[in-house]
């Protein structure tokens, strides 16, 4: 038993130190591509850390969104940036921001060190045992309609946060679209490996997403994780060179985009009218309502994330303008 604890402790220490080390390297390394690859690795290590901290839901979300999707976004952005830089004849190098205020070079690390020490002290000054809201969650689980506590918090207890959060996603997509299309299309033909990979992977990913969604009610998983896995399938298709073209501007597609947040908001409004309380799910129907909300949310999240990856405004927008 003791060896096991020791092993776990040393694993924790190793994981922690490598997290910090990776963060330092990825932020300070010369090459941006390397930095991004390191960032993806960092994300995966973070996912490990979440597992160690008994947070499998977060681990899934981190692996899919934090490492996977963000990494893909960063890599495409870098590729596009390189194209722009080649076109404009500019080069990028590791440049420090503070050329004309040299004294700050000494002040900044000092101030940050103070911040780190202070925060560290605060963390240690926290009481060693604090139940937080876990007791409240446990008491009310029976009325939440689901048996998995994270889903209960996300969709029921603090469903209002999630409602607004869906709108955050939507706003960011609208923002990305409002800036107009980015630079010249930079098309590459996918290699045979990617091609085969996609053919095999896309159906698997769709299945995984469906499973995650379904399992979310009683085990780790749920709308965000499923949505991001589904988005990954979309990203693979996009990498393959598949372009939605005119679909993006059609009404059905737009409907899918807004289905998640829209249904959430409408449900909230209806429940207010029926029960006099915002987002108060009737206990007997809570499970079904949450599942319906999650399903539409999954679709919307997947499409929004994939559209974010594409980052091109729908074509017909140009016709409007």
């Amino acid at each position: 038993m003791e060896t096991l604890t020791l092993l776990a402790l040393s694993f924790d220490a190793l994981l922690n130190l490598s997290l910090l080390y990776l963060a330092w390297i990825l932020l300070n390394c010369e090459d941006l591509l390397k930095a991004i690859v390191l960032f993806v690795a960092f994300g995966l290590l973070m996912a490990l850390a979440w597992v160690r901290l008994d947070a499998p839901d977060v681990a899934l979300a981190e692996a899919a969104i934090g490492a996977g999707l963000t990494g893909a976004l960063l890599l495409t952005a870098l590729a596009k940036l390189r194209v722009i830089e080649t076109n404009k004849g500019t080069t990028q190098q590791l440049k420090q921001d503070s050329e004309n205020f040299q004294t700050l070079h000494y002040m900044t690390p000092l101030a940050l060190l103070l911040v780190a020490i202070g925060l560290g002290y605060v963390v240690f000054s926290m009481p060693p045992i604090s139940a937080g809201l876990s007791n409240d969650v446990a008491t009310n689980m029976g009325n939440s309609g689901v048996s998995h506590s994270v889903t209960a918090v996300l969709l029921n207890f603090r469903g209002y946060d999630t409602l607004l959060e869906m709108f955050v996603l939507l706003v960011s997509l609208l923002g990305v679209w409002s800036f107009g299309s980015t630079t010249s299309q930079h098309e590459t033909t996918p290699g045979p490996v990617l091609d085969t990979l996609t053919r095999r992977l896309v159906p698997v990913l769709i299945l995984v997403a469906a499973y995650l969604l379904w399992v979310g009610a009683h085990a780790p998983g749920g709308a965000f994780q499923a949505g991001s896995v589904l988005a990954a399938a979309g990203v693979l298709l996009l990498l393959m060179g598949w372009r939605p073209g005119g679909y993006l501007s059609t009404l059905p597609f737009r409907l899918i985009l807004v289905a998640g947040p829209g249904l959430f908001a409408i449900t909230a409004a209806l429940l207010y009218l029926l029960k006099g309380q915002l987002l108060a799910f009737p206990v007997e129907y809570a499970g079904i309502i949450i599942f319906a909300l999650e399903t539409t949310a999954t679709l919307s999240i997947a499409v929004i994330l994939a559209a974010l990856f594409l980052s091109e405004p729908p074509h017909s927008d140009k016709e409007h303008i």
């Binding site: 029921n156 309380q277 799910f281």
Partner: peptide, 15 residues
Amino acid sequence: RHAVGGWGAPLGIDL
């Protein structure tokens, strides 16, 4: 004051 979802302050969100 309105408890969203009917849960009330520490667990839920209040308006």
